[in-house]
Amino acid sequence: MKIENIINEIESVDSEIYQRLDGRRSAMKNFAKFFGKFALASLPIAFGSMLNKAYGSPTGTTDAITDVLNFALTLEYIESEFYKKGYDAGVAGTLAIPAGAPMGAIKTIRDHEIAHVAFLKTAITSLGGTPVAFTAASFDFTAKGTFPTVFTDYGLFLAVAQTFEDTGVRAYKGQAGNLISNNDVLTAALNIHSVEARHASHIRQMRKTNGGLVPAGVNVKPWITLNQSGIGSSAVQASYDGEEATTQAGVNIVNIGGFTISPSAASEGFDEPLTKEQVVAIVTPFFA
């Protein structure tokens, strides 16, 4: 067990590893000495729990759970403020959302996101936590000028909406394990997670109909094919990287069991999680 080599590997990509672990490089020497007294078999477990402490919030505590819920609440604020502004622009006629089904769908999704904000605020408060608070002024949906016409170009509006929904699905999925100790909160989070996936499916169908920002030859489907965004902008790619997975828990899904399952279908059949850090990096440009 070359534990110091592992630490060195991590240090090569994360120079703060020692600070994360104990704040002092010397702590690692103590760690190595400590391990010298124990059987090899116990090393990976102890090392794993040490890394979990360094990189993850402590699981199972109310603090950790309200942290996850505040993270979710932040994402719901982004979505609700985005759809509020988009819907209002549609009503004002400055954003060309077609009347009828498309306006109805944006209103429906907006209302769900507003309901999610209210629900999460109540949940956090009932757990003794303090909900984060944002307003319309907290956000810059042009993403610092990357999407300057997001509220005047319907195709772009839908593309950003799709990215938010697909990212939201991946974000909730990535946090489920952190809620495993609280059945009620976990179930509620799962019940929001699947709604975000329903939204994503519908927005994708709206994009297929509208065709704006859909690259030539790309068929936008209700599900995610490989790591394809179906959006002609590299700015959204981080929300799709990793979705191309075709192996699940060590099982290859392509042509599994002798059935014809293409790599595309294998990737579509399973949505992939994002870590909190990945999601934060994706949404940071949308804060004013």
């Binding site: 089904a101 109805g104 769908a105 429906t108 999704i109 769900h112 699905v169 909730y172 999925k173 489920a176 799962l190 997670h193 699947s194 709604v195 975000e196 996936a197 329903r198 939204h199 994503a200 499916s201 519908h202 169908q205 209700p222 599900w223 699940q248 579509e268 059949g269 399973f270 949505d271 992939e272 999680p273």
Partner: peptide, 25 residues
């Protein structure tokens, strides 16, 4: 389970929209 359920939800929304547009959720 989470990786699968969101795909089922994407299916559900699509099928619902086929029956009656806008009923995805």
């Amino acid at each position: 389970a989470g990786k699968i359920v969101s795909v089922e939800a994407r299916h559900a929304a699509y099928i619902r929209d086929l029956i009656m547009p806008g009923t995805f959720a």
